[in-house]
Nucleic acid binder design. Structure first.
Lengths: 133, 133
DNA sequence: AGATGAGTTGACTTTAACGTAAAAACACTG
DNA sequence: CAGTGTTTTTACGTTAAAGTCAACTCATCT
């Protein structure tokens, strides 16, 4: 049961460079503790990195990702801030829903392209058999 | 029934700048015809622009998008090329599937954040009623 | 003819997200 | 204790995807 991860452990696990992790730190996306100069990443830091990379795969910018991550930790005491938080959540949800639709459409189009390719494939096979005969 | 779109029509419809559309053209992503110097976009060009923007929303780079768009138009006559095409399709599909999973996870987390916020909200409401009494 | 407005080209600038290289600090290993 | 490997800081470079600005063309309106 390991309490801390070194930077290289994480770069290997997530296939990123140290430069990348330090950059994320400079942007305030993670804040590993230090033993002397050395960075020590907690399991919590590791989770945040996972969130960051997931956000990137979905095409969010680091700034957007930062906002989302901050939503996770925040528990605003004031009702106005709570409303703002709920609004942000709703906004993100509809963005994600749009991405879902985009994916569905793209998958459908891939189906069509593939179907076309299969047809061509069988045409080729037929021609080959004909030539063999 | 309009055969052509001007560049500004499309910038308004898709909320992009002319610079953007010209840039996409320079990258070979669209190739509007010309009347003199002026660009004329066909409905087909318009569709391609839609595809580009959809790709961007999903976090694909313009190069990746170009590859995908070229897949659509391609009908390779040779079986090796066909295999390559099918492989690319499969690769894209799994990428998209990963994005779908990423979205699901993110949505679940948003649910949690929202639930937390609702709890806080009702706490605040309770306190307010208590103070009124 | 002059002004107005849409469109074009070309060049330079910007921003995000890192890459790369240099120099120095530590930790161990023979 | 010299050498080796890992990590750190600092600083400059790079790439993708446009933004911005200037000068120009062309058609149209007055």
């Amino acid at each position: 049961m390991q309490r801390y991860f070194t930077i290289t452990q994480l770069t290997q696990e997530f296939d990123v460079t140290t430069r990348t992790l330090r950059f994320y730190e400079a942007q305030g996306l993670v804040t590993p503790t230090r033993r002397g100069r050395q960075r020590l990443y907690t399991p919590g830091d590791r989770t945040r990195i996972k969130l960051i990379l997931r956000g990137k795969r979905l095409g969010f910018s680091l700034n957007e990702i930062k906002e989302m991550i901050e939503m996770y930790g925040s528990s605003p005491g004031e009702s106005g801030q709570l409303r703002l938080l709920l609004d942000k959540i709703a906004a993100r949800r509809s963005e994600l829903a749009e991405k879902q639709r985009d994916i569905e459409l793209t998958l459908l189009e891939l189906d069509e392209v593939e179907a076309g390719a299969m047809v061509r494939m069988s045409e080729l096979a037929g021609r080959t058999r004909a030539e063999e005969a």
